[in-house]
């Protein structure tokens, strides 16, 4: 089981308190009715599915219930950092 640090509660909690919520920083198009089928496919279905450093969303459903983002290594499942929703994608990762 993963131990995940919620950036709002500011403590590590077990994975069963959280829900994984998919790839992070996938921006919803502002005018979604006008985009092409290709753009919709890219936004809605295509995923990076990276083998290595992944940026993903989690939700602390059985805690503060808020969404936040995490950086994790998808080969070791080790968390590199977590940060609040709305914060920019970190350019420099700690310890990397």
């Amino acid at each position: 089981m993963l131990l995940i640090r919620c950036p709002y509660c500011e403590e590590e909690r077990p994975e069963i308190e959280f829900r994984h919520a998919g790839e992070a920083h996938v921006a919803r198009p502002t005018d979604i009715a006008s985009i092409s089928d290709e753009e919709f496919e890219t936004f809605f279905f295509i995923r990076a599915n990276t083998r290595g450093t992944v940026y993903e969303r989690w939700r602390h459903v059985h805690g503060c219930a808020r969404f936040f983002n995490a950086v994790r290594d998808s080969m070791s499942d080790r968390f590199i950092m977590t940060y609040k929703a709305g914060d920019p994608k970190p350019k420099k990762l700690p310890g990397v």
Partner: peptide, 13 residues
């Protein structure tokens, strides 16, 4: 498991 991973391992729960 709920998260994506290439680790070929999952959680006990």
């Amino acid at each position: 498991d709920q998260y994506y991973s290439y680790s070929q391992a999952g959680a006990l729960h």
